[in-house]
Design a protein around this nucleic acid. Structure first.
Length: 740
DNA sequence: GAGCACTGC
């Protein structure tokens, strides 16, 4: 790379990028429209060039040009690249901001950031008065934060009384996306113009398989199939690396084992078509893999060796591997879906969408023409795969997002301009939870507590527990726990069965040191033990803990502590006192945030949730409660995982008395009231009527415990969750196919 | 007696 000119950059000189001929027209389009949509595939140069064009056109005189990305690495690397092109020091005129890393200064006029960072900025300054242009990039990915920003930015213009005040000059909004659903985006922004830039990608030819049809959803079946196809590609195609898409760690390790076994028997003198290929290098790739192992993926293979990477969806957007010429697509992905019927999140394997399949195929055409082998049939494509992936906002718990909107003064959260509306019951469920946490009142207004809660980048329940602890002066118990629960899983699970046993043994020993069969206490103990250790990374290795995850828990804890310290300066920060032992204090704080996640022993080893859904759940075997559960009748838990059963993980025993007064709150809100609250149409009259109706209901139901018993009885008779039903259906299919 | 995709503040 030539330092004098800064021109010979990876990916081509700026003047040779497809966007360059459109420079003047683009700047004009921004000048004449409050909203503009710019589409173009990867490689058009829109992310790096447009902000520079706007800078040259004088858009940085009154304010900044802000560009959002859904991911941290993207924000950082693009900023580095643009700083280089503009020949300035990163952090001066061109900078970036992501969580834990603010590389901007007074001079920064072109700012790259994650969409979450911009959302936090909106919270502090709703009119975005520092910006002259806001560019939302990668909008087609439809991240939760991007979708919220879309609605907020639309509001800036449509509510003249709203956020436009406080601005001395108009804000420009540019939305950048791959060529998908651009009509919908344009319609959303009052039929604004769409600017199309041709991309610069190579053609990828796709073929369908003959084996995996609509009924072949069993993992071991499609794993075998991708292995077969990958070996076929290896022996019969020209040189070039292979990328295989599967859904998770265990599948990937299984596939790699199979590939390795079969590849050993290939005779490269006769069996391989392209004689320059003399071997295959098989590499797994998934998010929880140690970073140094991940790094191997990016190294070019030795001469004559073909690289075959077997990866999760992480290789679809987050990581780009050079030299990939062939894709083998299983057609499945593991996705976290929120099920509002049972009020919990479900991790399940589902078919990918057609647009996601095209995205996967595109990974073969980055440097030359490529081929994509889909193992599923055309019928599977047509019958099982939706056109587009359901956007995150429609399949995720909205509790935190709704609180954010409320704090931004968006009271009517149902009629907020969503590009795709979440189901009303998702919104109502979020409102109900916020009401239960005392974050909003019966009129839907944010409470003082809610204003404190929105400051924390955490799930509201966890924030509630943390604030309770802070008011009791024992935040040191909850800060580490909140941090540990908001980073990726810290317990390392190795691939080999022997090692798995060893790891499980160590993890059980860690739990035993607390002597309390409380999984939250185990997290606290791991955090503190590691932090006070002389060699923390060695300590992690020894105890089969993910050092990377724990390190990020350390930074999260620091950040949470800073936020808390700032809020405790406020005069109205709540203060309470408590007499009792430490273990009870700890668990009482947890109850304040997790009383929506209470379960009671029902029959034998089965527990029944007390959240109004009454789902039947099991203690996960990784929990310290698993073996001693006979002594325990009431528990609170952090989350539910639906696999072979509905499992609750990270749990601890509690006393009924601690939640007795909170539980009725779970049942006192009805949907009628909630939808009125959502629209803020509740009149005093309606409120009085509602109150008396509720009072009558309470009288009828008798004590809280009676009501719960009734609820439990009803649930024992009926409810089976959607996810459970799907699982049973799948199991049945599997048994049928085995019988045949 | 089971087994957890990927982001982000």
């Amino acid at each position: 790379m030539s330092k004098e000119t800064g021109r010979t950059l990876k990916g081509g000189e700026p003047k040779q990028l497809p966007i360059y001929p459109h420079k003047n027209k683009l700047v004009q389009a921004v000048r004449h429209n409050p909203f503009l949509i710019v589409t173009g595939e990867t490689g058009s140069g829109k992310t790096t060039q447009l902000p520079q064009y706007l800078y040259q056109a004088g858009y940085c005189k009154d304010g900044k040009v802000g560009v959002t990305q859904p991911r941290r690495v993207a924000a950082i690397t693009v900023a580095q690249r643009v700083a280089q092109e503009m020949k300035c020091t990163l952090g001066r005129e061109v900078g970036y901001q992501v969580r834990f890393d603010d590389c901007t200064s007074q001079d920064t006029v072109v700012k790259y950031m994650t969409d979450g960072c911009l959302l936090r900025e909106v919270l502090a300054d709703p009119s975005l008065s520092q910006y002259s242009v806001v560019i939302l990039d990668e909008v087609h990915e439809r991240s939760l934060n991007t979708d919220i920003l879309l609605g907020l930015l639309k509001n800036v213009f449509c509510n003249s009384a709203g956020a436009t005040k406080g601005r001395s000059f108009p804000l420009k909004v540019v939305v950048m996306s791959a060529t998908l659903e651009t009509d919908k985006l344009s319609a959303f922004f009052n039929d604004c113009p769409v600017f199309e830039i041709p991309g610069r990608v190579f053609p990828v030819t796709c073929t369908f398989g003959s084996a995996v049809g609509p009924k072949d959803v069993e993992s071991s079946f499609y794993v075998k199939e991708v292995v077969k196809v990958a070996l076929d590609v290896h022996t019969s195609e020209q040189a070039g690396d292979i990328l295989v898409f599967l859904t998770g760690q265990s599948e990937i390790e299984h596939a790699c084992d199979l590939l390795f076994d079969k590849a050993e028997n290939i005779d490269y003198r006769y069996d391989v078509l392209d004689r320059t290929v003399e071997g295959i290098l098989i590499l797994p790739l998934y998010g929880s893999m140690p970073t140094d192992q991940q790094r191997q993926i990016f190294q070019p293979p030795p001469p004559g060796i073909r690289k075959c990477v077997v990866a999760t969806n992480i290789a679809a957007t987050s990581l780009t591997i050079n030299g990939i010429k062939y894709i083998v697509d299983s057609g499945f992905v593991k996705q976290l879906n929120h099920n509002s019927r049972v009020g919990m999140d479900v991790l399940e394997v589902v078919p990918i969408s057609k647009s996601e399949a095209q995205q996967r195929a595109g990974r073969a055409g980055r440097t030359s023409a490529g081929k994509c082998f889909r193992i599923y049939t055309k019928e599977f494509w047509e019958k099982c795969m939706p056109e587009y992936t359901v956007p995150e906002i429609q399949r995720t718990s909205l509790t935190a997002v709704i609180l954010t909107l409320k704090c931004l003064g968006v009271h009517d959260v149902i009629r907020f301009p969503y590009l795709d509306c979440p189901e009303e019951r998702f919104i109502l469920e979020a409102l109900k939870q916020l009401y239960q946490f005392d974050a909003i009142d019966r009129r839907g207004k944010v409470t003082k507590l809610g204003e404190l809660m929105v400051e924390f980048p955490l799930h509201p329940g966890l924030t509630r527990a943390l604030l309770k602890a802070a008011s009791l002066g024992c935040e040191d118990l909850l800060l580490p726990v909140a941090a540990m629960l908001s980073v990726e899983n810290i317990f390392f699970r190795p691939g080999h069965p022997d090692k798995q046993k060893e790891a499980a043994k160590k993890h059980r020993a860690l739990a035993a040191t607390t002597g309390s069969m409380n999984d939250f206490a185990t997290l606290l103990s791991v955090f503190n033990s590691c932090k006070s250790s002389d060699r923390p990374s060695a300590w992690c290795k020894e105890n089969w803990i993910h050092w990377r995850a724990l390190k990020s828990a350390f930074s999260v804890e620091t950040q949470l502590r800073e936020i808390l310290l700032r809020l405790q300066q406020r005069r109205d920060f709540p203060v309470e006192t408590f007499d009792g032992n430490k273990s009870e204090l700890f668990r009482r704080c947890l109850c304040a945030g997790y009383f929506t996640n209470v379960a009671r022993r029902s029959v034998g080893k089965v527990f029944c949730t007390m959240d109004g859904h009454g789902s039947m759940v099991h203690i996960h075997p990784s929990s310290s409660l698993f073996e001693q559960e006979a002594e325990v009748n009431w528990v609170i838990f952090h989350d539910v995982l639906v696999t072979s059963k509905m499992f609750i993980r990270t749990a601890c025993p509690i006393r009924y008395e601690w939640v007795k007064d909170l539980l009725p709150k779970l049942h006192e809100v009805d949907v009628y009231e909630l939808s009125s609250v959502a629209r803020q149409e509740v009149t005093e009259d309606e409120m009085v009527k509602w109150e008396s109706r509720e009072a009558a209901k309470r009288q009828q139901e008798g004590s809280a415990e009676d009501a719960l018993k009734k609820l439990e009885k009803r649930n024992n008779e009926a409810t089976v969750s959607d996810a459970r039903a799907r699982y049973l259906q799948r199991k049945q299919q599997r048994q049928q196919s085995k019988a045949l």
